[in-house]
Nucleic acid binder design. Sequence first.
DNA 1: GCGGGTTTGGTGACATGTCAACAAGTCGGT
DNA 2: ACCGACTTGTTGACATGTCACCAAACCCGC
Lengths: 158, 158
Amino acid sequence: MDAPRWLDARENRAWRGYRRMRRLLDLELARELMQDAGLSEPDYDVLSDLSETPDQRLRLSELADRMLWSRSRLSHHLARMQQRGLVGREECPSDGRGSVVVLTPAGRAAIEAAAPGHVAAVRRHLIDLLTPEEIDALGALTQRVVDRLSGRRTTPEG
Amino acid sequence: MDAPRWLDARENRAWRGYRRMRRLLDLELARELMQDAGLSEPDYDVLSDLSETPDQRLRLSELADRMLWSRSRLSHHLARMQQRGLVGREECPSDGRGSVVVLTPAGRAAIEAAAPGHVAAVRRHLIDLLTPEEIDALGALTQRVVDRLSGRRTTPEG
DNA sequence: GCGGGTTTGGTGACATGTCAACAAGTCGGT
DNA sequence: ACCGACTTGTTGACATGTCACCAAACCCGC
């Protein structure tokens, strides 16, 4: 058991700042999104992922993987969104177990109404406060961390 | 209603990367913390904040403000932690309404046992993957965003 | 084709977080 | 001293997320 390498002043500033930003940004973006569009962030993410897909439809497990959600969580959440008419479910033609999530017209309307305001909020509270260099640094750094955690390599091998 | 300024490729990479990192980092750190120390991240944060305070004790509302939690959330969470013997409650001598949260010996033991491993995990999955320049950039950028969201100015005025 | 092992999505029980309402205590003007 | 407005912390109802488990469907070697 080695002596732990604690964080030094700079590392601490980065780590604490990251966590504080995370929390504040979440609260504010969620607040505005709910107020302006009547959607929670999870709602928005589901609709957003669905709307970016060619047919506006995805297998439940495919959607869960993209969102990094458990199937159980997605299943519960979709049930609630289905109640509100934002998404629908279809049987999967190629797999009898499968279920396909579809964006309804109401769901499409909701995401189209919400998106401009949400992007503006992301700009206002984050993106537009950063220099181009910081944006690139953030992009590079997050990608590296994500790649490691996803078990992939940073450099394509072979 | 102007045409929305969508995010360009670089901005998108930063924003999506940030959100993906957020999610993956959370899952992994929470998983390791629970496995190694039997604590959730909220547990850890409460114990950590308390242990950094001179008397190992804080007014409930003071703690809530530091953590950016609602009082209700903290009250519920403390009740659960109290059940497990990690924290205690005392009456506040200066304010009859108030309640003071105290770190118990068991709570102190828990945070001291958990901290080295948790810091190591933060290093392994984030800090040690960044260059010194990136650490400074992250510190600067998060502080700027946090200051704005907290309603404070970036530059001290006056 | 069949049968064991896997995958898929759903379910209920439970843990956690949010919200509105509340009782008790404090504060300040009169 | 008293009254009304505010603050503090708690509570219960409810929304959301997690976990373990299950039935149905799939896959694949035989």
